[in-house]
């Protein structure tokens, strides 16, 4: 199982790098850091069906760090929500694959992101709705570590615990790089796990590229009472050596030569 998922993740990495290259723009770094967790989530937790994508009982995935849209589009292709043709249109006029994930445009996307700090609040709305209606669907939210600099994240962390939302799950992609530079250069966020825990959440820290750990943590989150957060320590650009831990690949497309090298490494 772990091995299968790792293969899927590698396939998704190739899709990510390829679609960003074709678009000539996009965010490879944060897509590659998040993809192992996203694959683990869709392959072991998410109850979704491309033929019934609006099912009110489906699990929700709220991708708050919406610039990492290629990661979402790659798994949606694997799950038959999108086609290769859709991915080839990434960032092009009229494409269902908008620059940032957008529920209005893309089958299988549950949230319109692009402005950081909003997704956890949206997830609270979904989780509250399920609770009011006695529905058992789960809401999974992924945010970036730089995103925790937004004050709204802390409003939401406070509210989720107050409303005892055990059906809400947060994943922090702790890749340590944001738009301009390293997170600790731009605005030190420190021990994010302890901070979230102090807001009343259960928190688990994992290696966000270890598929076995990812699967365990997702199960733990689902089985644990009250809101749970997984702080996933990741490497920005993971899987492509020259993108790894390199702030310049936060929001830059690979050129032809870089694409060739990346695909070689991901083969």
């Amino acid at each position: 199982m772990v091995e299968e998922l790792e293969k899927t993740a590698k396939k998704c990495r190739r899709l990510i790098v390829d679609m960003i290259h074709k678009a000539g723009a996009g965010h490879p770094g944060g897509s590659l850091s998040a993809i192992d967790i996203i694959v683990g989530l869709y392959e072991t937790q998410m109850n979704v069906d491309p033929n019934n994508s609006e099912d009110e009982n489906r699990d929700r995935f709220v991708m708050s760090k919406g610039h990492a849209s290629p990661a979402v589009y790659s798994i949606l292709k694997e799950k038959n929500f999108l086609t290769q043709n859709d991915l080839d249109g990434f960032r092009k006029l009229g494409s269902v694959c908008q620059g940032h994930v957008d529920m209005k445009w893309t089958n299988g996307v549950d949230f319109s992101a692009g402005s950081l700090g909003m997704g956890l609040s949206f997830g609270i709305g979904c989780a509250l709705s399920a609770k009011m209606d006695g529905k058992s669907f789960q809401t999974w939210v992924m945010i970036g570590d730089g995103e925790t600099q937004e004050g709204q994240i802390w409003e939401a962390l406070m509210a989720a615990n107050y409303h005892k939302l055990g059906n809400l799950h947060l994943i922090v992609d702790r890749n340590r790089i944001q738009n301009d530079d390293f997170v600790d250069v731009q605005m030190e966020i420190g021990d994010i796990a302890t901070k979230i825990n102090s807001f009343g959440w259960n928190v688990k820290e994992i290696d966000g590229h270890d598929m076995a750990e990812i699967i365990d943590a997702l199960n733990w989150s689902k089985e644990t009472k009250g809101p749970c957060a997984i702080v996933a320590h990741t490497v920005k650009g993971k899987g492509v050596s020259f993108m790894e831990n390199n702030p310049s690949f936060h929001g830059k497309a690979p050129n032809n030569e870089e694409l060739r090298k990346a695909m070689e490494e991901l083969s």
Partner: peptide, 8 residues
């Protein structure tokens, strides 16, 4: 945004 999530 909680309103938005509920509306969705």
């Amino acid at each position: 945004l909680v309103s938005a999530g509920l509306a969705s």
